[in-house]
Design a protein around this nucleic acid. Structure first.
Lengths: 181, 181
DNA sequence: CATGCCATGTAAGGGGTTACATGATTTT
DNA sequence: AAAATCATGTAACCCCTTACATGGCATG
């Protein structure tokens, strides 16, 4: 998946691994994230596969910044992937639900501590998403269109709806446990 | 995480790998899933670590069914894990959002095909969750209490809320794209 | 006697996580 | 001068996914 995220961003304009890391942290974090170690490794692999080319401008800068550019083969692979259909829904993996599922033997006070802690974290997450201007990404790309902004803001809406759902669920469980005090 | 799911279920009663696979498929699938290859491997590892013990009853059955039982060390490790706090929210990984994010160059008709396809899948998922009786798990465990049922049904509520949220988000995006026809 | 389900495993490859490692530039 | 940020990489380990592989039991 990271493969297509990198191809997707580089399809707008050439970038370094560091810039890609920063953009992923600031724009896809509500549905996909990656470590820098993973990004640099994958960029090398995509270059080996002929989907990207890279160059370091030794003259102009000593930081060894390697700028990656998507190739025609890379663009083709990206479009081919986008055209394929997802056979199944992506499975959810939620650690907190594992903990809740096996919580029957724990004291309500301890469970409530953890739930309230999680509630704060998710409230923070929601606040961060809401603080993002709808066009916070558009400013970074010359080639971004109104249509890009439509899809980007749609994924952000998902992130907001997810956190709102999560908070409502937490509140429901917290209220239930409190009423047993 | 699978480690604690296996310990968690075996904390109710001894079981075989096959039974654990079946129970995971029928009860935690909305927040965690695992392949049988992973389950058998992990059970062996947990036995090596002294958290489980297993035996095959050669006399009574030829199916080589290996029944795992949690040890005191395993119970301790499970409780210790439940007592730790999650430092961060679990990151979401949603392939469909990756696709939507990079969809600007695709035709609306193609995107709508995929979104409607996903809508059907998520509607099916929601219907399945709603069809589960609130006590569908309780019947399987002698030692399950009312309190177990409370937490189990709470995680199921999460699954239902998640799918409802997902459908509402899909409908919103579908409507937006349709209005551009 | 064929199909479907019960039952358990191994192996290869891919992807994700954490830690280690280094060094330049910019800001305070 | 110190601290923060920019910038790139490697290595070990673990987990997940897919495929391969085998064989017993039950039902029609």
């Amino acid at each position: 998946m990271l493969k297509y995220i990198l191809l997707g961003f580089l399809n707008y304009q050439p970038m370094t691994g560091y810039e890609l890391k920063s953009i992923i942290d600031n724009s896809t974090m509500h549905f996909w994230h990656a470590y820098h170690s993973q990004i640099y490794t994958m960029l090398r692999k995509l270059e080996d596969d002929g989907l990207l080319v890279s160059e370091v401008d030794d003259e102009a800068d000593k930081l060894n910044r390697r700028t990656y550019t998507i190739t025609a083969a890379g663009q083709h692979e990206l479009q081919a992937w986008l055209a394929t259909s997802m056979a199944n829904v992506a499975p959810v993996k939620e650690e907190l639900l594992v903990r809740v599922f096996f919580s029957a033997q724990r004291a309500n006070a301890d469970i409530l501590d953890e739930l309230r802690h999680q509630r704060r974290l998710h409230q923070n997450q929601l606040n961060e998403y809401r603080a993002l201007a709808p066009d916070h990404l558009q400013d970074r790309y010359d080639s971004a269109t109104q249509r890009d902004a439509l899809f980007w803001s749609s994924t952000l809406k998902f992130g907001i709806a997810y956190e709102e759902m999560y908070l409502a669920w937490l509140d429901q469980l917290i209220t239930t446990l409190e009423s047993q005090a």
